[in-house]
Amino acid sequence: MNSKQPSAPAPHPRPSRRSYALLAVGVTCVTAAELLFKRGATATAGAADATALFGFSILTSGWTWLGIAAYISASAAWINVLRQMPLHIAFSMMSADQALVPLCAWALLGETISPRRWCGIGLVIVGVYVIARPASHREVKP
């Protein structure tokens, strides 16, 4: 029954719509988690030891725990995405949050974004689109 040529790597099976929906849930939850972690970190910044590599005192803020809840939801979605989707496709689409997080930090946390940074955010969005589009529209070859 095994007609595969040993030298050619097997093509990735086409990920289902459910995988893409789960990926969207994951991106949203990760963005929320990062913003909540930053609120938690800001709230606990006074307690931070300037020489410590790890920021354990971040755990004393309720915002951090909300962030952890969002991150757990994102992780649950993410590991289900990984069952079907190649890691490099899924992870690069997940990097939509590279643009979403600064945008939300600007809109919700009042952080400033320079014109150059806006251009960078634009490029990240285009890059994610280039990677995502062929993956979602690829025809299955017989």
Binding site: H12, H88, R116, G120, I121, L123, G127, V128
Partner: peptide, 27 residues
């Protein structure tokens, strides 16, 4: 490590993302 096949479009996408990231971090 996982032997996933990368396409040309994927590489173009990475290049755009890296360029964007470089711009964002340089500003």
């Amino acid at each position: 490590f996982l032997k996933e096949k990368l396409t040309l479009r994927t590489w173009i996408g990475i290049a755009l993302i890296s360029a964007g990231v470089a711009l964002v971090s340089a500003s």
